[in-house]
Amino acid sequence: MDTQKRLDEHISALMDGELSEHEVGLAMAALSEPEGRLAWRAYHLIGDVLRSDASGAELGEGFNSRLSARLDVEVAPAAGHAAPAAAPPVAPQPPVAQPAAASASAVPVLSAAVTPGR
């Protein structure tokens, strides 16, 4: 596991109150770096969206069918091959787009958390 991923996991565990006392120093050190602060903000945004009722954040007519169609043509990665690296962070979006973007970014984060072998 690479160092940044491990530090992100420490930040996530700190936010969830699941970090052991001796690991708090690692999380605090990670938060002193720009990548750590970016992860902190992203995790908070994801949490805010997951806890919200999402009213007013409709995705538009036909979104589910378009998403299903795109997922149907996706090629699953071969067993034993690493997934491609995540894209670099993008510039902040207008506030209207943030809930939808946070919901979309929560899917891979939550999927990774529950995928065996990660």
Rank of each mutant, 00 (worst) to 15 (best):
L110I: 11
L14R: 04
A54K: 07
L67H: 01
P88A: 12
A101D: 13
A87V: 03
L59K: 07
S111G: 09
K5W: 14
E61R: 03
D2H: 04
R51L: 15
A83D: 09
D8P: 01
P94F: 01
A101E: 08
K5E: 15
E18Y: 03
A13P: 04
S103W: 15
E18M: 15
L7F: 04
A112K: 01
Q4D: 15
D48L: 08
V109F: 14
A106Q: 08
S20D: 12
V24M: 13
A104D: 13
L38N: 07
G17W: 10
A78H: 00
A54Y: 06
M15K: 07
A112V: 03
A39Q: 10
F63V: 11
R51A: 15
E23S: 13
A85T: 13
D16I: 08
A79W: 05
A54S: 08
V114G: 06
L71G: 07
R37I: 05
L110F: 09
W40G: 02
A79Y: 06
A91I: 03
G62S: 11
A27F: 01
A69N: 09
Q4F: 04
G36K: 02
E33D: 10
A100L: 12
A39T: 11
D53H: 04
V107N: 03
A29F: 07
S65W: 02
R118M: 12
S55L: 06
D2Y: 02
Q98T: 15
R118L: 14
M15D: 04
A101S: 14
D2K: 00
A101P: 00
V90C: 04
P89S: 12
L14P: 02
D16T: 07
R70H: 14
P84E: 03
A83I: 07
Q4G: 05
M15T: 00
V49E: 13
L31S: 12
A79I: 03
S52I: 05
I11V: 14
R118G: 07
E35L: 01
L71W: 10
R41G: 09
G25Y: 07
E33G: 01
P108W: 02
S111T: 13
A27G: 05
L14D: 03
L14Y: 11
H10I: 00
P108E: 02
V114Y: 08
A82F: 00
P94L: 02
V114N: 05
A39F: 02
V96P: 03
A39G: 00
H10Q: 14
Q98E: 15
E23K: 14
L14N: 02
A30N: 07
D72S: 14
G25T: 11
P84R: 04
R37T: 03
A106M: 09
N64G: 14
L45D: 15
G25F: 08
E9W: 03
R37E: 15
V107C: 08
A102R: 00
I46P: 06
